[in-house]
Computed example of a mutant assay.
Amino acid sequence: MVAGETSGDMLAARLLSGLRPQLPDSLMHGIGGKHMAEYGFQSDYPMEKLSVRGLFEVLMHYREISGIRKQLMAQLLDEKPEVFIGVDAPDFNLDLEVQLKRAGIPTMHYISPSIWAWRGGRIKKIAEAVSHMLVIFPFEEEIYRKAGIPATYVGHPLAQVIPMEPDVEAAREELGLEADARVVTILPGSRMSEIKYNTTAFIATAKLLLQREPHLQFLVPMVGAKQRAYYSELVLAAQLDEVPILLMEGKSHTAIAAADVVLVASGTASLEVALFKKPMVIAYKMMAASWHVLKHMGYQPWIGLPNIIAEDFLVPEFLQSAATPQNMADALWQQLNDVALQKRLKLRFADMHQDLLRDTAGISAQAVLNLIHNR
């Protein structure tokens, strides 16, 4: 198995929670993180080496990433595992899967690349690379069946992990917040590149909101110590360290549950916020050169997962130059104070939660076992 970042590690761990009891003595290894390790997964390389996003950012790390893939390829071709599972990270995993499949090793890819959003031509490569695709959105299964690629809709694992009715009071008590506090949670991203480009604008947004309401409380969860240190360095360099922030390591779900509104970088985290039924503003910034290339490659008017699933601008999105502190602060202020809007969003997000709710661990584990059996 190969997972390339924190969200992939969590998704893969969900699959392993269903698979490990079925294969208690199997060696499960490759590249993964701490959540996969809880199920006896052995990571041969640090997962952080693959956690790079953006066209030019990847190019800067290409030699190292390519070297890891070549070493892993040689190891797997020699070992001939019962199955290889690529978890997201399509730019890394699909090339690996093509070679493994040609060598007669069954390949499964867990989470479809966003071919319905951009780079739809990749489905030809997917057909060459993947023996079976596990998809997490209902509309994806038909796309693959039409292309002749076996696929199974397993639901979104986060829909099982996140409760239908989050306990706001318990979350605030855990974080030492007053029950009646007005709370804004800020999620600039888990990757170092996301933290680099989003942090300053996101915290400057908090500063503007404080001018409107001085007693607002801000929460910023970070994935780990390295990310937390980098965030603090950026805030200090931007002279925004006077903005009162409760900075924490981990506890992202607790911070979302405790919030009245969330400012979130586009990605899986935006879906987590929707499943917690929270109003949000989605924003994203990246290296200018990467944005110049990527902005012309999308098929849809939305970039946030909640909006894509709904096929509607349920919540505001601000990208690159539009992601200014003023724009984000204005949008967050409306979300924070419009009670009718909050009620509408809660209902839409509850429907979304139901649509994504399946026995993900059980269904995905059975699909893996079937692939091994049919070999």
Rank of each mutant, 00 (worst) to 15 (best):
L357R: 00
L371K: 14
I149D: 03
P163A: 13
R228A: 13
H253W: 05
Y299Q: 06
K295A: 00
I68N: 06
A89L: 09
M222H: 15
A159T: 03
S66M: 11
T254I: 02
Q75T: 07
Y230A: 02
V87P: 04
L234Q: 13
K49H: 11
A274E: 12
R53F: 02
M28S: 00
Q99C: 05
G86K: 06
P81K: 04
I372M: 02
A170P: 01
V220L: 13
P316K: 06
I363K: 01
A201Q: 07
H132R: 10
L271V: 07
G189T: 08
F313P: 14
E233M: 15
K277R: 15
V87R: 03
M10H: 05
E174N: 05
A365G: 08
D312A: 15
R119W: 01
S43N: 03
I203G: 06
P81A: 10
Q300K: 03
A350F: 01
F202V: 04
L96T: 09
K34C: 13
A127T: 02
D88M: 11
P166C: 12
S252T: 13
L19G: 01
V223I: 11
I123A: 02
V168R: 13
Y299C: 04
L158D: 03
I372S: 09
L219M: 14
A340I: 09
A255Y: 05
A258G: 07
R53V: 14
V83H: 14
P81L: 09
A323E: 08
H29P: 06
Q334L: 01
P166K: 00
G33I: 06
A181I: 10
V135T: 15
H156A: 03
V87L: 13
L100A: 01
L275K: 14
G32V: 05
I111S: 03
G155Y: 02
E233W: 00
Q326C: 01
T324H: 09
S51H: 12
F218V: 05
M352Q: 01
T199K: 07
Q342W: 05
M133A: 05
